[in-house]
């Protein structure tokens, strides 16, 4: 993002921007349709399917960051990128750690575990 000039760019820049949006759009459509078809037609086993569609989602995230949000065109220092990575990392921690922690909590605090502790001497 060249922040200085928001309204008056030359012809080559204009062409580049237009190409960027069109490429991004086409790629995103593909990255949306492929996982959709994979899920609708059950083309893979469930666990693999989950992993694959997540990968497609992250790839589309990268595509949109690059082609719609022009994150590579940022001039140094790449503050937008750094801040994005910081928050992306935070969100990963929030989601992944929550799932990990809650899985353990749910199991340990469940009736199944209660039964295991009481009758089979299993620890936490």
């Amino acid at each position: 993002m060249n922040n200085e000039n928001l309204t008056n760019i030359n012809k080559t820049e204009s062409k580049k921007i237009l190409q960027s949006y069109i490429t991004g759009f086409i790629l995103s459509i593909i990255l949306t349709l492929v996982p959709y078809i994979l899920v609708m037609d059950h083309l893979l086993t469930p666990l693999v399917l989950v992993g694959v569609i997540l990968v497609f989602a992250f790839v589309q995230l990268a595509v949109q960051l690059l082609f719609f949000l022009h994150i590579r065109q940022e001039s140094k220092p790449r503050l937008n990128l750094v801040i994005f990575l910081l928050f992306f990392g935070t969100i990963l921690v929030v989601v992944v750690a929550s799932v990990w922690i809650m899985q353990h909590l749910n199991y340990n605090m469940s009736l199944v575990q209660f039964n295991n502790v009481m009758n089979y001497g299993e620890g936490f």
Binding site: W100, H104, N108
Partner: peptide, 8 residues
């Protein structure tokens, strides 16, 4: 003490 277990 909420019970996440030893690993966590």
């Amino acid at each position: 003490t909420m019970g996440a277990g030893a690993d966590v």
